[in-house]
Computed example of a mutant assay.
Amino acid sequence: MRVTVLAGGVGGARFVRGLRAALGDADDHEITVVVNTGDDLWLSGVRLQPDVDSILYALAGVNDTERGWGRAGESERVSAELREWGAGWPWFTLGDLDLGTHLARTGWLREGLTYTQVAERLASRWPIGVRLLPMTDAEVDTYVVVEDGSRLHFQEWWTRHRAALRALEFQNPGVAQAVPAPGVTDAIETADVVLVAPSNPVVSIGPILAVPGIRDALARARRVVGISPIIGGRVVRGMADACLSAIGVETSAAAVARHYGRRADGGLLDMWLVAEEDAGLAPDLAADGWDVRVTPLWMTDLERSAALARAATAE
């Protein structure tokens, strides 16, 4: 089975780990993950790709499961020294091991490698069992326009302000001129199923869909299945509700489904998975023509993540 996943963030990382476990190591399975790069940024002269690294570290088994980001067993001497110099963002801590990744990436970019080539080189360090593709080789960082009219990099709004400043708009400058990274559209069009991971619909999945050509590829895909990032009317992690409110979408599994839309109506999805806690929403969605399935969505351990992945890939 060929499976392509659109993903970003911790939710995407957990889901992809479960998918790998569900499919096993059989030679007849192939997993490609198209990763959001809208969270990327330049900081202290190095290029950070938070979603790429979160998924890479999780699949390699070297992620910090307690914090939910970065490497396990980190030290933070370099970040402390940067603060002493007044460099970088004092509220954005980079672990020393994580910084090694960013330095390697930046050096390879300076040598002329593309983001796709860098992702391949990083992934070759560990037997992660999937192909990681950035959504594009262009830089299309996410910016947030807040209530006073100022524009902040997404990481400042998310990490420093914890999404407390009311967002009016999310922007990805340059995305209209971007193209999908090599292999992305082919991975979508040739997959037996494309899975939209339970990642933030606005700032993780949204930038992927904004790259010209990706929605067209999804329209040609064999089958597209989405997994709700909302359980019982609440976000699973982070402040996705603040993102949804900014684009006028209610924090509910049904509202996110309608935000993505049915492929039969010109949207994205053929099937939508909702949590048992949201089973009451299924009849109304079904009445509107949705193929909606109710299944446990909490990914509290690898076994449950794998069970969710099996439900998402089942016919």
Rank of each mutant, 00 (worst) to 15 (best):
G267M: 14
R262M: 15
A7F: 12
H259W: 08
V179M: 04
T32I: 09
A123L: 11
T32L: 10
V194I: 03
A264Q: 15
H29C: 05
Y115D: 13
V193C: 07
D216A: 15
A282D: 08
W69V: 04
T185M: 11
F170H: 07
V146Y: 03
S252N: 07
S124M: 06
T32Q: 04
A119P: 04
P50S: 08
T106K: 08
D40Q: 02
G289Q: 11
T295W: 02
G226H: 04
L302G: 11
E81V: 13
R131W: 10
A13L: 09
V144M: 03
V34E: 00
G8K: 03
A264R: 14
I230A: 11
M135A: 14
L6T: 01
G70A: 11
A275T: 09
A167D: 08
P50C: 06
F92Y: 06
A58P: 06
W158I: 01
F170G: 06
A60T: 04
T313I: 06
E250D: 12
L281I: 13
H259M: 12
R151Q: 10
M271K: 05
R237N: 10
W290R: 02
V235W: 02
I55E: 05
T300G: 11
L132Q: 13
Q155C: 04
A282Q: 04
N63C: 12
N63I: 13
L195H: 08
T32C: 12
D39H: 03
T251L: 05
R220K: 15
H102F: 02
L56I: 13
D284F: 09
G112M: 14
M299R: 07
P212V: 07
S150F: 10
V224W: 03
A197Y: 05
L218G: 10
G45N: 04
V274E: 00
A104E: 00
D53Y: 03
V144A: 06
R14D: 09
P207Q: 00
Q49V: 04
L99A: 10
P296T: 11
T106F: 02
F92L: 15
L209T: 01
D137Q: 11
L43K: 06
V235L: 08
S79F: 01
A123I: 03
P182N: 09
D137L: 01
L268H: 08
L297F: 12
R223I: 08
A210E: 07
T101D: 04
S204M: 13
E74R: 06
E276R: 12
G107K: 00
G266D: 07
T300Q: 12
A257H: 02
I230H: 01
A246P: 01
G238Q: 05
P127Y: 12
A87E: 09
T142Q: 05
R110N: 10
M299A: 10
E147S: 15
N200C: 02
R2G: 05
